[in-house]
Amino acid sequence: MTPATSRFVAYGFASVHDALAAESALASAGVAVIVIPSPRVLGELCGIALRVDPASARAAESALEVAGLPPRASAEIDDL
């Protein structure tokens, strides 16, 4: 049986402060967000990263742009 998979978008930031500021900005914009350990694919930009549903990615990136906190890296990842 093939395990069910889903995907998420991970955003990396330059610092823990920026990541938490971005979490706050996304929450204010109504975007559901989870803080996760930074996935290796993001290049270890930070000890933590933000996880967002792909369906919310556009809204998330827009909110981060408005907040002046554009992610330093992002990746769409399989959540196995």
């Binding site: 823990v16 402060h17 270890e44 000890g47």
Partner: peptide
């Protein structure tokens, strides 16, 4: 904690 831990130099941010 943050930044690129593998880098030799201190993060400048």
């Amino acid at each position: 904690g943050g930044g690129s831990s593998e880098e030799e130099s201190q993060p400048q941010g």
